[in-house]
């Protein structure tokens, strides 16, 4: 057999890659199609109770009518707004608290047991307290999205601050840098990758906080639709809300991923 030329080898390699991508995509689409088909068929044949588990076609119909009469948009925008706000305040708040812990060792030592307790505490259990304190409205729900992500952010980012190579600090101190200059020139930029990766975690956490918050109090939002659907036994509505939440959360996650890539590129 004649040995292949360099270009031919490279072409073969590229072809292999393309083929692999095709196989993966086929499987991905296949699994989804089979899943929805099984669901639809077993619902129609009463293998599963259509009243409880609905069916893809009913859910699809429902989403279409809800989009048409505009009622879906209100709920989606309310939930999105609350989640984004909870996510932003939680992340920024966490970074700020971590910064203050870094500035003062003594403050960090004093706060240590409280942070442990708050971190170990299931934050959703604070729901009723939040509602009493902030009233049964947006504020409590946003606070829920905030509270669930802020402590984790604080702990993770603070740890990252502490793990920055001490020699960078040494270099700066040999130039006579003060605490804020050390933070600005070394600690913050060195911890940026960790902060960005907490964004991804926080997206998921804020969704949890907001949906739970809506379960408890709201009159609007996707969490409300789920609870309402459950109470009036309209499981198509429950399922439809779940589908929309899944899509939105995935989109938001992808968005943060894009943001991460962009930030990494522009702050190396």
């Amino acid at each position: 057999m004649k040995p292949l030329k360099d270009e031919q080898l490279y072409e073969a390699y590229q072809k292999g890659l393309k083929k692999e991508r095709k196989i993966v995509l086929t499987w991905q689409v296949g699994i989804a199609v089979i899943f929805f088909l099984c669901w639809e068929i077993s619902s129609r044949l009463y293998i599963i109770d259509p009243l409880l588990f609905s069916s893809p076609s009913k859910i699809f119909d429902l989403i279409l009518t809800r989009i048409a009469n505009g009622s879906l948009f209100v709920h989606v925008s309310v939930t999105l707004f609350e989640t984004l706000l909870g996510f932003l305040i939680g992340t920024i708040g966490g970074v700020l608290i971590a910064t203050s812990l870094w500035y003062s060792n003594r403050f960090a030592n004093i706060m240590d047991p409280y942070l442990v307790i708050f971190n170990a505490m299931p934050k959703v259990a604070l729901g009723p307290i939040l509602i009493v304190a902030l009233g049964p409205g947006y504020l409590s729900i946003i606070a829920m999205g905030f509270i669930i992500s802020v402590i984790v952010t604080t702990l993770v980012v603070y740890r990252a601050f502490l793990e920055v190579d001490r020699n960078y600090t040494m270099v700066l101190r040999s130039f006579g840098a003060n605490q804020s200059q050390i933070f600005k020139e070394a600690i913050f930029p060195a911890s940026l990758p960790v902060m960005i990766s907490t964004l991804k975690v926080n997206v998921g956490l804020s969704w949890v906080g907001v949906i739970v918050g809506e379960y408890l109090v709201s009159k609007q939002g996707l969490g409300y639709l789920i609870i309402y659907g459950f109470q009036v036994f309209d499981f198509s509505l429950v399922m439809a809300s779940l589908v929309i939440i899944a899509i939105l959360a995935a989109l938001m996650y992808k968005g943060v991923e894009k943001l991460e890539a962009w930030l990494m590129k522009h702050t190396k």
């Binding site: 190579d165 020699n167 960078y168 270099v171 040999s174 020139e185 930029p189 190396k268």
Partner: peptide, 14 residues
Amino acid sequence: EIGYMLQQDYLFPW
């Protein structure tokens, strides 16, 4: 002023 050079360069990568 005192100049201090360390074992590794510790240039800031960013």
